[in-house]
Design a protein around this nucleic acid. Sequence first.
DNA 1: TTACACAACTAACACTTGTTAGTTTACTTG
DNA 2: CAAGTAAACTAACAAGTGTTAGTTGTGTAA
Lengths: 190, 190
Amino acid sequence: MKPETRQQEIIRVAAKLFKEKGYSAVTMRHLATAMDIKAASLYNHIESKQDILERIIISLAETFTQGMKQISESNETCINKLKKIIELHVHISSKNSYGMASLNNDWMHLESQLTYYKKLRSDYENDFKTILEDGIKSGEIIHAKPDVMMFSILTTLRSLYIWIPKKEVINLKELTDDLSNILINGIAKE
Amino acid sequence: MKPETRQQEIIRVAAKLFKEKGYSAVTMRHLATAMDIKAASLYNHIESKQDILERIIISLAETFTQGMKQISESNETCINKLKKIIELHVHISSKNSYGMASLNNDWMHLESQLTYYKKLRSDYENDFKTILEDGIKSGEIIHAKPDVMMFSILTTLRSLYIWIPKKEVINLKELTDDLSNILINGIAKE
DNA sequence: TTACACAACTAACACTTGTTAGTTTACTTG
DNA sequence: CAAGTAAACTAACAAGTGTTAGTTGTGTAA
């Protein structure tokens, strides 16, 4: 494990502030104060405020894309694929709950990378929906609207970043199992 | 139906902008432009930017509190109470999806009303959890952690504001039923 | 020791922010 | 017609915004 670079440290602290107040409400001077340096010094390590946001969001979005690729290409049952997706969200959200806040709430403040982000997100949702549709065809999943099912599951998973830090004990395996039960047993036939 | 006052019009337009960019990123000049007047003119109708946010969020939060009161005091089964809650969220979210965005994402920018808002929210969540706990005791609901169940259902309901405007056809009755099925059939025993 | 990169600093810039003061215009009401 | 009111306006302010330029100190490699 290499020690954190100064740039990574700034991005980590920024993500924490972004979670608390949102991207727009966090100023470079606030961030600098939190880093115990002057605002101008930040620019030795990052290009711009926008640059910080891009690094937070895009790297997370690509991690999800990569995880989804592995899951959707695997030879698991659809139900197991869904469980893997839940696991993926719990895992990423617990490792980077600050970044997840930006991914969820501040993506619209992306500029040059906005289109790219939107593509990653819509690809992810399409893969998700395909898994559900396959499950319906194969009889694993009840014959309900894939849209509504995806919305219900995905919004819960996307909000994990709010919830995970609040739990005193973060037994991730247990949380994943509980969520799987509650989310999937409303979908699986019988 | 009385016609909308100028103040209500400003609040409505502001809520729309807040949904798109968040409270902090919307300036009084943006809002004024959207209203086709100058920024200073806004102050003939509202006290401050903060005042707008308070009016949007607090009135919505109180509507939820009121709805929850009626539901929790009723003599319905727990499952039926949950269905009523789902109906409540679908109804409010469809009537005011812009305001719901502020309620969800910009509450932390409340100042004098922040404590009040937090109390309303935590009371709401306590009532919700009590319904689930009663359902577990009476055998209507599976014996899973009320926290996780509430989180799963409530985050889905809280995100409806994103989803409802995207649906071309907004058959609210149908959406309520679909959501009830998907959310509750993962909770109801057998 | 000299050279150099790293990471901090001060000072300043051009612009934007929410808001106020004072004024004008156009209806409505007595 | 006179008076009042609602709702717009112009002009300005003080504070805060992201960012740049140029400088300084500090540790490391040649």
